[in-house]
Design a protein around this nucleic acid. Sequence first.
DNA 1: TTGCTCCTCACGTCACGTGAGGTGGC
DNA 2: TTGCTCCTCACGTCACGTGAGGTGGC
Lengths: 280, 280
Amino acid sequence: VSALLTIGEFSRVTHLSVKALRHSDDVGLLQPADVDRSSGYRRYASAQAPIAHVIRRFRDLDMPLEQIRVVLDAPDVEARNQAIIAHLERMQQSLERTQSTVASLRALLEGTETTLSVEHRSVAAMPAIAIAEQVDWDDTEVWLGAALAELHGVLASHPDWRAAADAALYSTEFFAAHSGPVVAFVPITRQSAVAGRVQIIEVPAAELALTMHEGPFEDLDETYGALGTFVAERVLGAAGPIREHYLVTEADTDDPAQWRTEVCWPIRQPFIDGGGERDP
Amino acid sequence: VSALLTIGEFSRVTHLSVKALRHSDDVGLLQPADVDRSSGYRRYASAQAPIAHVIRRFRDLDMPLEQIRVVLDAPDVEARNQAIIAHLERMQQSLERTQSTVASLRALLEGTETTLSVEHRSVAAMPAIAIAEQVDWDDTEVWLGAALAELHGVLASHPDWRAAADAALYSTEFFAAHSGPVVAFVPITRQSAVAGRVQIIEVPAAELALTMHEGPFEDLDETYGALGTFVAERVLGAAGPIREHYLVTEADTDDPAQWRTEVCWPIRQPFIDGGGERDP
DNA sequence: TTGCTCCTCACGTCACGTGAGGTGGC
DNA sequence: TTGCTCCTCACGTCACGTGAGGTGGC
């Protein structure tokens, strides 16, 4: 015999606020067992309390209501557990990011001064196999990993067709709007059969100011800051995408401190190679 | 020689989006070195990049812009480090809550059936020293700890004046709106001198349905669910605040599984003591 | 019968994202 | 000169919280 409770009683039984309960009703996540036709009064069955307790815990974990609905509507225990595990994994990743951000922040505030060495490089146009897409900022690392893996698949049977390291072009729009065109590419020595997302492009010639980034991608902003400042102070800036060359990556070592990425800024004209001071 | 950059260039140098930079300008967190009178064009100094990098890391840690401003405006390194450490501690606590929420969620989904044993208790009015205030839901644990500590201070020199365990009254409004009157109190055997927030009250008489909650406060909703359902199914509900008696607390043991809290639901009339089935 | 509970709008929060519509600079 | 960049509104997002103004139930 499941009793009917007013919204106020149900809030005491579930520890959800009346406003939160009404909102869950509005979006269809947790609807009262009965609603009075004339007064609009909501009546909850006491048997609904366990569902509300589960909702409360997921909300404490910042799971969006929409996704809680997916979990609760899961057709079987397997699907439900899948959805829960997926959320817990995302939380775990966000936790790891948090920890490395804290480390990165500490380093930044301690302010070790580093010498920046910038090289000029004049690159000719080159053929490449490539995947070009609109990419959102927060998806970039995952997208790039998948795109490069797909390109590696094309070269799997002809490793000698590779002409240079993995690389990518990032449009100015991508930085300005945190969403925009990105091109992942691998330079090649000869034509190869391609299909699906993969296409053959010619990466345009460019004059580039280039420096080496040492460490995780998360800290790339500091290298961009140093290189961009170097270019701006010499009034060398030119239009065009920024290039990154992935020389040492996760595929080579698990220690992000060992990773090496060349960052290439488009410039108008050559300059005498040299060093500058990096800001603290 | 600090160069001036357009907002687009500055977004590449800082890895902050143009929209985010304009927002930081609007709220006064990071204002461009110069703004063109006629066109409104923002110009950032390259020397502002390191500040933007710090802002980006704090935002990655979900620090509110207002608090980032406090950190950046800190008059000295001491004050700045204080603010940073305070934020990291809050993050640490939120992390611990997350982990216990995950454990609690697992237990809930595994659904161990428990027998609920409910006792009837008729309590007479009793004098108590008390602190009564409007309390927000998320502040409750901290507020209660501080309030009870203050009450303990009053009894410090006369421990024999205590008549029963620490307790609190929670108004229905507190549950409905997640903010409302809460009374922390300690029953006493004789009058004592009080000052400040502490007052002497008479806790009213009541008929109560009572059960023991075993474990951390976070899981109180399940005990509330079982007890509230028990009361509702027997149509015993009465108006009035809910009482909690803190029998075994953090002061006694560090293991939250050992904590014991009596939860007391106001009812209209006595009933025969007995047990009910707790929902899975 | 009184006052407490419940109802539905309408608007605010926070840190931006998403257009619309228009101008400026190389 | 063209098109890319920049500008300012105005509105949307998400999960509610905060009133306002009014009705229902014990």
